[in-house]
Amino acid sequence: MKCSQASIGRVFILRLEHGDQLPDTIEAFALQHKIQSATVFFLGGAEKDSKVVVGPEEGGAEKIVATLTNLSGVSESVGVGTLFVNQEKIPKLHLHAAFGRGRDTVTGCTREGVKIWHIGEVIILELINHSAERKIDPRTGFELLEV
């Protein structure tokens, strides 16, 4: 384990609107407001056919390929994530969420595009005074958090 201590900076409250997309909307907001790192909380509705990463095709593979699923209908959702700048100083959101419809639940990463259905509430807690950022891991190709 590696660690970097941080302090809380600004706090933002966002109301996403119908058709806004995760992670794009939050990353654009972070860029506009010069947020380099944050904890992100999400609560709201997700549109039918939103794409969710539900794991790798094969966990031990040399090249990791994501398994995607589309939401079968409008879903209730709750998620938590982190936002850190990458090596180009561009904010990148890593947010996992659970999406429920009836008795079915899908849990996964929003990086492929989740569209908001009418309601999207987001709290962003900016993190300051630390050394963490995302860097490309040559083995996986992922932008991993380096502290």
Rank of each mutant, 00 (worst) to 15 (best):
H130R: 07
E146C: 09
V80E: 11
H18N: 15
K115V: 05
A30Y: 05
D104W: 10
E133Y: 15
Q32I: 09
Q32E: 15
L144D: 14
G102E: 13
G79H: 02
G59W: 00
A46D: 09
K92P: 00
H94P: 00
K2A: 13
L127I: 03
G81C: 07
T39E: 15
W117L: 10
G19T: 06
R111Y: 06
S75K: 02
I119E: 13
V78Y: 09
G108P: 03
R139I: 13
L16S: 03
G120R: 01
Q21K: 14
D137Y: 01
D24I: 11
T39C: 14
C3T: 11
D20G: 02
I123Y: 01
D24Q: 15
L71N: 01
S7D: 12
L83E: 02
A61Q: 05
K89D: 14
L71P: 01
I13S: 13
G120F: 02
E76I: 09
S72H: 07
A30K: 06
G9P: 00
E146M: 06
S4W: 01
K92D: 12
N86L: 07
G55I: 05
G60A: 02
E133D: 10
S77Y: 04
L83F: 05
H118K: 15
I136S: 06
E47C: 14
G102D: 13
L144M: 12
G73A: 15
F41N: 13
Q21S: 13
I35A: 06
L125D: 04
S37N: 09
H96S: 14
T140M: 04
G55K: 01
S131G: 09
D49R: 14
K135L: 14
Q87N: 10
L125W: 03
K63L: 09
K2Q: 12
L125M: 06
T67G: 00
V122N: 01
Q21T: 14
G59R: 04
G113Q: 07
R15W: 00
H96K: 14
L95K: 04
Q36W: 08
V85Q: 11
S37F: 09
I35F: 05
S4H: 01
A61M: 00
L68M: 12
I123P: 01
E143P: 00
L93Q: 05
L93V: 06
Q36V: 12
I8E: 10
P91E: 04
V40N: 06
